[in-house]
C-alpha cells in the first residue's frame, strides 16, 4: 500500500490544552477536540512525513500499541479529519505554500 502524507489545513486555529488539541475551523465555525493520541498525529502532520513513519516514531514510541493497530486507527482518524476539511491527505508529500 502507498504511504499517506498529511498536512494541517491553513483554515484552522489550533491550541493544545491539557494534552488535548482544540481546533477551530474558520470555514464553518466548528470546534474540534482531539484526544492525546490524535493530538500526537496532528502535531506531526507536516506534509512531509509519511503517516506510517509518524505512527512508528511518534505514536508507538509514546503509547503502548502495536504498529499495525496504530496505523489502522491513524488512517481512520486522518480520513475523518479530511472529511471535516481540517486536514489534507495525499499520496505524495504536501508542499505548504
Amino acid at each position: 500500500m502507498s504511504s499517506l502524507y498529511i498536512a494541517r489545513s491553513r483554515q484552522v486555529a489550533a491550541r493544545e490544552l491539557g494534552g488535548e488539541m482544540m481546533i477551530m475551523s474558520a470555514r464553518d465555525s466548528t470546534l474540534f477536540s482531539l484526544n492525546d493520541v490524535a493530538t500526537v498525529i496532528w502535531q506531526a502532520a507536516d506534509g512531509q512525513t509519511p503517516l506510517d513513519e509518524i505512527v512508528e516514531r511518534r505514536v508507538c514510541a509514546e503509547f503502548d500499541v502495536e504498529p499495525a493497530e496504530a496505523l489502522k486507527d491513524a488512517e481512520s482518524l486522518v480520513r475523518e479529519l479530511e472529511g471535516h476539511g481540517i486536514l489534507m491527505v495525499s499520496e505524495t508529500p504536501v508542499v505548504s505554500g
Binding site: V37, E62, L77
Partner: peptide, 17 residues
C-alpha cells in the same frame, strides 16, 4: 516500560454558532 496506555485516536466536534 515508559509508554502510556493507548487510546484509539478520536475527534469530537461541535458547531459553535
Amino acid at each position: 516500560k515508559g509508554r502510556k496506555p493507548y487510546r484509539k485516536p478520536e475527534v469530537r466536534y461541535e458547531k459553535v454558532f
